[in-house]
Amino acid sequence: MAADLNAYLLVGAVLFVCGVVCMATKRNGIGVLMGVELVLNGANVNFVAFSRYTDLGLDGQVFSLFVIVLAAAEAAVALAIALNFYNNHLTIDVDRANKLKG
């Protein structure tokens, strides 16, 4: 497998899809968060790959840095929400967070 743009993109795609499936299948709220991290990471791989292999240049890396920072922020807030949810419901099962269902 050659280390070219498409190879990176495919890795990113796998990460992305894994993240999405993770989000779709994990009932544990933290698991869903991990899926989100995977998805973001897949996007990061793409950014870095474009930065490396096209004339996008530095901007891709800058973007991926921002993504990392925002992912950290997102993780902090989401975790706080998850903790709150756990405090109120004594479970972390996202399927039980359906009070607003139709």
Partner: peptide
């Protein structure tokens, strides 16, 4: 993934990935 970043010459991003993520 961080290793992949290093491979893609994005060493700072890779280090950030390791440290932050």
């Amino acid at each position: 993934t961080a290793a992949l970043f290093f491979l893609a010459n994005a060493d700072f991003v890779g280090a950030a990935q390791l440290l932050i993520y």
